[in-house]
């Protein structure tokens, strides 16, 4: 909408008060961090075993997988899409790799990880093709593929679990070993953050993802191929899910048909908490990681605070709802303040 905007501030025309919520927008990451610290302190007071090295490492490894997926999901959300299939992709990749290593104990861990990523990439390519080339709505395409991948997982597993005793130690070691005293899982996550950071802020393609999400029409005029970008983000998401499948199975030393069922919701929650806009175009890596950390802490802290684990879903749902509604309220506040400053 074209509206006049005066250069001079015009406080005299302000009939109503400016929205205070709007100032929240500027301090989003800081606010999230402060909240995490407050939460940690609160939990620590209730239960001193919270901030022990053991528990913190446990929390960090749990959060590692969540945050890797959240990085991929952020890119999908930035393009105005959504991917509900990641839990299923993760399970399928985990199950297939677990079957391979249990049948062939000399299979190297690195090869296992690469196989997992490969399976994930294939899964992601299918979704990317559906969304970008055929034009199926992301929610429909990923809902359908979620079931197909989940069904495949049950089919190849024949309903049986693969447990730790069937897996070679080297494979379980992927998630439990450490390099330079730091858990491998955490290292992998750090590596993913660093590459993602470089990719989204220092390469053309990375910025094009944001351009497509911010204004697809302009992107077309600029000559950016929306199809290629969509294909890319769903493929990346698939690859990361495949990677996490291997990590998950290695960490929990078990692969089953319903592995990570519903996990996509926690991932989306982490992104929304981290300030990724559902309307596309914006989302910061730092925010998303903080969002994942917050969800990770909540999951870990509830049992420590003697809250029944059955409250977890309810709390998660409330958090997502409050976070998205608050986002909107903040945005409206910003817009309202813009209007108030306009001189008429």
């Amino acid at each position: 909408m074209a509206v006049h905007t005066a250069n001079a501030p015009a406080a005299e025309t302000a009939v109503k008060k400016e929205s205070k919520l709007a100032s929240l927008a500027r301090f989003r990451e800081m606010g999230l961090l402060a909240f995490i610290i407050l939460l940690a302190v609160g939990v620590q007071i209730r239960n001193p075993s919270f901030l022990t090295v053991e528990n913190v490492v446990d929390m960090a490894t749990n959060t590692a997988i969540l945050s890797i997926l959240a990085v991929g999901m952020m890119l999908v959300l930035v393009t105005r899409g959504i991917d509900l299939s990641i839990g299923a992709t993760l399970a399928l990749s985990g199950m297939l790799v677990a079957q391979i290593v249990s049948a062939n104990s000399s299979f190297s861990p690195l090869l296992a990880v690469l196989t997992g990523i490969g399976i994930g990439i294939i899964c992601g390519l299918v979704i990317g093709g559906l969304v970008s080339w055929i034009g199926v709505l992301p929610i429909i395409a990923t809902l359908a593929m979620m079931n197909i991948y989940r069904g495949f997982t049950y089919m190849v597993s024949d309903g049986k679990w693969i447990s730790s005793y069937q897996m070679p130690e080297s494979f379980v070691g992927i998630a439990t070993s450490s390099v330079f005293g730091i858990n491998t899982l955490i290292l992998i996550a750090l590596f993913i953050y660093a590459s993602a950071y470089y990719f989204i802020s220092h390469t053309r393609t990375g910025r094009q993802i944001y351009a497509v999400g911010s204004n697809p029409e302009s992107a077309k005029i600029t000559g950016i191929s929306e199809k290629k970008i969509l294909m890319l983000v769903y493929t990346l998401m698939g690859g990361l899910s495949g990677l996490c499948g291997v990590l998950w199975v290695s960490k929990f030393a078990s692969a089953q048909g319903d592995t990570a069922s519903g996990y996509e919701l926690s991932v989306i929650a982490a992104c929304i908490l981290g300030g990724v806009s559902i309307a596309g175009g914006s989302g910061k890596l730092g925010g998303v990681i903080l969002g994942a950390v917050l969800i990770g802490i909540l999951n870990n802290a509830l049992p420590l605070m003697n809250v029944s684990p059955f409250w977890q879903k309810g709390i998660e749902g409330t958090i997502i709802l409050v976070a998205v509604l608050l986002n909107v309220a903040v945005k409206r506040g910003v817009e309202r303040n813009h209007l108030l400053r306009r001189r008429i």
Partner: peptide, 13 residues
């Protein structure tokens, strides 16, 4: 999506 998690969450509670 949010209420989907929330409603089932309440059922679990």
């Amino acid at each position: 999506l949010a209420t989907m998690i929330l409603y089932r969450g309440i059922a679990y509670i």
